[in-house]
Design a protein around this nucleic acid. Structure first.
Lengths: 111, 111
DNA sequence: CAGTATCCACATCGATACTG
DNA sequence: CAGTATCGATGTGGATACTG
């Protein structure tokens, strides 16, 4: 869109959507809601995602305060991502979204 | 995105987001939650939206069953849009999204 | 392993002009 | 007034190769 959702927007709905908007962010949060994970682990368990998009989305989520990045200084490097305390406040909302979405899919299937 | 959110997706979150995704859909639903409105009325009260995008989003929302379109056969034509019974089930979720978004904006403003 | 750099494809959106 | 058609801009994501 011409006005990127990344811009500062006065609309609270857009503000929230901008955080979870992105092809894979929902899936990423879903996986991480089960516990911290390494980058490569996420990469393996999310079919179809490219490394570029994975890293990109992870960093954006960190930027927004939703995720935390823990790096163990070692060779080769080991980075773990987890949902931050702030990110936890997002999960109930995602649940609601998911619930509605499930019903919507069921209705679509029914015709 | 390459895989359009309009595609049939097995992910409930994407399913819900695809319904409200679109530069202006949040705002449109917001306005219509206060009551039915004519196309021109919406056009006037949503600053910056073009006629094309307004109509486009309205029709998509009708397609998804969220809105209802009432046409009075007259010259010139008079069309009113309102939130459908099904669309009403979406509003509480939008409220949740909005609430979280408001807090998020407040935090951003705080730094 | 984690992350970056390029390059490209495509969907969405905006501007404008037009129709019934 | 409600809606369509056309065209161009651009943002987002994908493929691939590369670095520390």
């Amino acid at each position: 869109m011409a006005v990127s959702k990344k811009e500062i927007s006065a609309c609270p709905i857009d503000a929230m959507l901008s955080v979870i908007d992105g092809r894979w962010k929902g899936t990423i949060l879903w996986r991480l809601s089960e516990g911290p994970m390494r980058t490569s682990e996420l990469h393996r368990t999310i079919p179809g995602i490219t490394q570029r998009m994975l890293i990109r989305h992870l960093h954006e989520l960190v930027q927004d305060g939703i995720l935390e990045r823990h790096q163990e200084r070692s060779t080769p490097p080991c980075v773990r991502y987890s949902i931050s305390k702030y990110g936890l406040t997002l999960l109930p909302v995602l649940e609601e979204i998911c619930t509605w979405g499930r019903k919507h899919l069921a209705l679509q299937a029914a015709g």
